[in-house]
C-alpha cells in the first residue's frame, strides 16, 4: 500500500488519455458528431433558406442550435464504454477522487465539442454568412470556448444522473436541453454580434460575460453535488 496520495494530475491525465485512446480505437463518437452537425446545418438551410434567402442574420442561431443538439450526442456517449463493458466498478474501487471522474468527463465533452466546432464554425461561415471577416472567427472561437465550458460542466453532471436510468437516450436531451437554453441564447447572440461585419462589441462582451457566469454557476452546482452523484 502506498502511503503517498496519488497525484491528482496524473490521475486526471490517465483518465483523459483513456478516453482519447478509446476514441482513437473505435472512432465512434467524433465522426458521428461531426456528420450530425453537418446534416443539422443542411436541415436549417432547407427549412429556412429554401428560396435562397440570405441567412446571415440568423447564422449565429443556426450555429448554436446545431452545436447544442450535437452536444447532446456527445454527452450521451459519456460513460457508454464504462456501462457496456462494465468497467465502472473498476474505476470506483480505485482511490480516484470523485470530482476527478466528473472533471475528466467534462474534459472529454469539451474536447469533443471543440473538435466539432473546428469543423462547424468555418462551415457555417461559408454556408450562411455573406461578407465574413477572418478576424471575426477568432472572436467566435472565444465564444465557443466559453460556451463549451458551461456545456461540458452541466453535461458531465447530467450524464451521471442519466447513467442508471431507463430510456437513457430519451431522458438525457429532456434533462439537458432546457438547462442549455441560456447558453444557446447567449452564444448565438454573441456570435451574431460579431459575424457578418456587424461588430457590436458591447453586446458581444455582455454575452461572453454571461457565458462565463453560467459556467461558474454550474461549476458550483457540480462541485456542491458531485459527492452525492457517486455515492458509495
Amino acid at each position: 500500500m502506498n502511503a503517498a496520495r496519488p497525484s491528482w494530475f496524473r490521475q486526471l491525465r490517465a483518465l483523459l488519455l483513456k478516453d482519447l485512446r478509446l476514441e482513437l480505437r473505435t472512432r465512434d463518437t467524433l465522426v458521428a458528431m461531426v456528420l450530425f452537425a453537418v446534416v443539422a446545418m443542411m436541415i436549417f438551410q432547407f427549412a429556412f433558406g429554401g428560396r435562397g434567402q440570405d441567412l446571415s442574420a440568423v447564422s449565429g442561431g443556426i450555429l448554436w442550435a446545431t452545436l447544442a443538439l450535437t452536444a447532446v450526442l456527445g454527452v450521451g456517449r459519456s460513460w457508454v464504454p464504462e456501462r457496456e463493458q462494465r468497467v465502472l466498478d473498476g474505476l470506483l474501487v480505485t482511490p480516484v477522487p470523485r470530482d476527478l471522474l466528473l472533471i475528466s468527463r467534462a474534459g472529454a465533452i469539451f474536447a469533443y465539442l471543440l473538435a466539432v466546432e473546428v469543423v462547424a464554425v468555418p462551415l457555417v461561415t461559408i454556408f450562411f454568412v455573406r461578407g465574413q471577416e477572418p478576424g471575426d472567427l477568432l472572436l467566435i472561437g472565444l465564444v465557443c470556448l466559453l460556451a463549451n465550458l458551461g456545456i461540458s460542466v452541466l453535461g458531465s453532471l447530467l450524464a451521471c444522473l442519466a447513467l442508471f436510468a431507463r430510456a437513457r437516450e430519451l431522458l438525457l436531451p429532456v434533462l439537458f436541453l432546457p438547462s442549455l437554453l441560456p447558453v444557446v441564447i447567449a452564444a448565438s447572440g454573441a456570435t451574431q454580434a460579431v459575424s457578418g461585419g456587424t461588430n457590436d462589441l458591447a453586446e458581444y462582451r455582455g454575452y461572453c460575460l454571461f457565458l462565463g457566469v453560467y459556467a461558474v454557476i454550474f461549476g458550483l452546482v457540480a462541485y456542491a453535488t458531485y459527492e452525492h452523484v457517486f455515492d458509495d
Binding site: S179, V221, T225
Partner: peptide
Amino acid sequence: IYSIAAFAS
C-alpha cells in the same frame, strides 16, 4: 441533485 441544478437554471 437535479432539483438544485434546475433551480440554478
